[in-house]
Design a protein around this nucleic acid. Structure first.
Lengths: 188, 188, 188, 188
DNA sequence: AATGAATGAGTATTCATTCAT
DNA sequence: TATGAATGAATACTCATTCAT
């Protein structure tokens, strides 16, 4: 809100960046790619973002907001089990995208780790938020090992996203999704 | 053997490439980086590899051979459970490296997916070999769902590697490793 | 007109390319050479031309336009004989340049033939236009063998340009020019 | 004889160079190309030729010897007219090669002119020998303008070779060949 | 004489970033 | 604010030439 101008170009750039960075990867994506996807002239990008890094940072933030809204929707469900299973279900629904490009959060985290700038901390924070929410769900289920379970669930998702992407097989995500749902049920 | 020359420079280059690609990522790594790590003049690299892609391919192959030797060592253990748990144990032992750079196989697979060349198929094959071996272990344990279990185990490892790397916390790998060992025991 | 920007840098680059390619040859000419001749920073060349090939293509087009304007001037003369002889005369006038670098069209055609790109077709088209014009002049003189005569005249020019260049002797062009003028007169 | 060793590698290299330089052009041809064509290891080339230039020079000489043998064969014919027409006839016979690669002498002369080394003088000398022979034939026909006629004939050949090559049309060489034969007859 | 290997200078191309208007 | 144009540093790749054996 605060940063958006009448034309909303800043948001459009950040949104386009999320999409293009997911599809092409950070290193393969040029500023021109993002500018084109946002339908903004290249030279104009620098009015909104001083550097490419700042644009990536904005993309990470935008992706974080997206995850927050996903969580907010899940919160409407009555029990933690249902919430977690709904999350798993949403992953399975995205299986075709995962097969093409992997998980947006995970691929970003993986790539940003190799860079000198501090952007890896930004994506770690986003992933940490989701992890924290998961932990709270397991805790609400009365589990003492909520932290461990949250880590296991997040790892399972990140890992199966990578496998689904590597083998280009959406069925892998589906199979693992069902297994995770059964697993969640078994924890009650 | 077949490709090694007296000085073994070709192998030295492939080996250095495995290391540097893991540490810096594919896109951030220049030919000069690899040449320097192998203590070989840049121009000389092209005597052994026609393109950067071919050098990466050789690095993938070298990494594949490394995994094969790891598997060969595991094979000496008497039962499939012991073999699988020893594999998990070796992951935990590598936790500091994972915290710094992630899993070499996984980060490579993730990055190569974004490229146009066919190298993503090469790393997929390497990962597929390990996956197949895991499946055979679960099958030897009498599990009908060996394939599903193998996928779950591989995903857990890839995912926890990514989390360990993202949060720069080797303890995550340790925690998940113990959980996986208990899980394997529970399947018998 | 259509492609020229305010500063006309694109045209300046194409023009400089025509000159430098003629003087140094296609293979010996670097992009830096052309950029320097046009007084344009190397990196900036790529704003106007995606590849070296495209710049060469623009140079060929520019040379083609030059030939068109030469023809347009010749068209003002009353009879085809006069036009053809004026063309021969213009060749003789350029004899010092030919002694130094050969015919721009011919040397370009000769060099481009050795390349894989389709640029040899572009220069062939330019030469074909001039050849067609010559043929129309001979036809206007009532000659049934206009095509054959046009080919003979063009060949004579290309050949004497090569000899003049090889022996570095402008007098050769002069001598052959006079012979060709007499020959044209004899055809009436 | 003097330079040939038992194995005749030097001659084989020069011969291969003539062929490859004609087909690929001087600048596009690497030493490795020639070495491969001569079935000689690259490193070994430098035992016979100190530089690439010296190898090209040897190729020019070899081509010169070839032209000498062609002339020697023509000398057996009784009259100068017959000799010249036989020369023209041999050009026509080579029309397919000319369509593909142009005249070996001419393309070499054209390319070498752009270089700093003195090789352009070497090929000029070879062409000069042939030109001198032509001139002697016209003189033997009693023509006072023998020099001019020789230049015209050589230019016609070089020019039609270039056109035949540029338009990739062997018929051009054929057409011009017939015209030149009639022309020679008309000079008697 | 022979040869696989080594070397370094040179070239096209990309792209984040800056500038002028 | 907006934008086309400018810039230069970086990178993969080629190849004549040299070296060690």
């Amino acid at each position: 809100m605060t940063n958006s101008t009448r034309s909303g170009k800043r948001d459009r750039l950040a949104g386009a960046a999320v999409r293009v960075l997911h599809e092409q990867g950070v290193e393969k994506t040029t500023l021109a790619d993002i500018a084109r996807a946002a339908d903004v002239p290249v030279g104009n990008v620098y009015y909104y973002f001083k550097t490419k890094d700042q644009l990536i940072e904005a993309a990470i933030a935008a992706h974080g907001h997206h995850l927050e809204s996903v969580i907010a929707t899940l919160e409407r469900l009555p029990t933690p089990q249902e919430r977690l299973k709904a999350l798993v279900h949403s992953w399975v629904e995205q299986r075709d995208l995962a097969a093409k490009y992997g998980c947006p959060t995970g691929t970003l985290a993986s790539e940003l780790d190799k860079r000198d700038d501090g952007l890896d901390r930004a994506i770690a924070k986003v992933m940490g938020e989701l992890l924290g929410w998961m932990e709270r769900q397991f805790a609400a289920m009365g589990r003492e090992d909520a932290r461990e379970l949250a880590v296991a669930l997040m790892a399972a998702y990140q890992g199966i996203s990578l496998l689904t992407n590597t083998f280009r097989d959406p069925a892998l995500m589906e199979m693992e999704g069902h297994r995770l749902e059964r697993w969640i049920d078994s924890l009650a």
